[in-house]
Design a protein around this nucleic acid. Structure first.
Lengths: 198, 198
DNA sequence: CACTCGCATACATGATGTATGTATGTTGTC
DNA sequence: GACAACATACATACATCATGTATGCGAGTG
């Protein structure tokens, strides 16, 4: 008799592997994280890992996808809560900076991510966060708030690039709180360059 | 008798190792580059490498320093050649985007660099490029061209972050030339947000 | 009841790092 | 100025460990 059905057990195994890997990747970094170690921590072996994810990189992709999805959801919530669309756009990006202060996000997405998976724009997750920013930008252009002579695609990348770098800078600063207070206005100033002149 | 003096031979060995490593890191990436292979390509063994650079990461640092110095020099040349300071600032940043299109720069500095050495702001090279941008910004603030209510340090980071991301995006685009034409105006628009209102 | 498949075990390969050896250049002394 | 003692640049050999693959077992399923 099976107390649990098979698909359930599979899902549980995958979840355990992803959770253990996420922790290991976040704390030690991708290269230093030993598959033997963190699969053991999850009460499994590398056999399960290779069965479900093919290789170490495949598991890393799954972890990235999970984190990316969480971030996209939080960003969307921030954006919809804002009074005006432009305000939502700005808040969303500042929220992005805040999330990038999380050591796990920083290490996995910002530091190791590009090295392992290449440029974020070609990631399997298709970088949900950037897609969100771009959609917002296009709407703002349609509303006449943002200048129309710039491409939403690149701009979304530029903006997210600036945010992530700001976050890295803040996180590595001696006084992160103070650094954050300096970063926000500078970031807002840059974004204002996108507004239509009047 | 010694046809060459000792310091000369040492310098030559170091240069050969750095050159071979730069090529290997650029083409295969840091993790995939085998020390046995590229030291052999330089006519040496790992013995020389460990003697001069301590470990693989140490050699990587040396390569980064070299590339960074080259870039800083080129950027400085671009900036001084411009008619106005603001113009030089903009051109410098666009030049930065252009240099980041070089596959070697991209792979070593932008992709593997953060994974191996951490955030660029704490690199041994102290990221000469960013320092150059910051110095320029401070001067522009003193001249009254750029708004003074923002911090030059963060802003330099934000701007360089946006440039590098733009470069990555362009390099991975299907049509890099077209992508570049779209990226430049968007980038200029962002920078205009830094100007003092009038 | 046979069979698929999720997962563990055992092994092959290759990479890094260290300990040791050698040969060459440098320096001190007569 | 020559020879010896020494320092050091670099090579070789080895220990350790990580990934990936091939194989085997056992539990859930039709």
């Amino acid at each position: 008799m099976s107390r649990r059905t098979r698909p359930e057990m599979i899902a549980e195994t995958r979840a355990k592997l992803i959770a253990a890997a996420r922790k290991a990747f976040g704390e030690e970094g991708y290269a230093a994280a030993s598959m033997d170690d963190f699969t053991a921590a999850a009460g499994l072996t590398r056999g399960a890992l290779y069965h479900h994810f093919g290789d170490k990189k495949g598991l890393f992709e799954a972890v990235v996808r999970e984190i990316d999805a969480e971030m996209a959801a939080r960003l969307a919530a921030i954006a919809t809560a804002a009074p005006t669309r432009w305000n939502g756009f700005v808040e969303e990006n500042i929220g992005y900076v805040g999330m990038a202060l999380d050591p796990e996000v920083q290490r996995i997405l910002l530091r190791d991510g590009p090295a392992v998976l290449g440029d974020p724009s070609i990631w399997p997750s298709a970088a949900g966060c950037i897609a969100g920013i771009r959609a917002n930008l296009e709407q703002l252009q349609a509303d006449g708030v943002v200048r129309r002579d710039i491409d939403a695609d690149v701009t979304a990348r530029l903006v997210s690039g600036a945010s992530t770098d700001a976050a890295l800078w803040i996180a590595n600063a001696e006084d992160p709180a103070a650094a954050s207070r300096k970063a926000i206005p500078a970031f807002k100033a840059l974004l204002e360059g996108l507004l239509r002149k009047h």
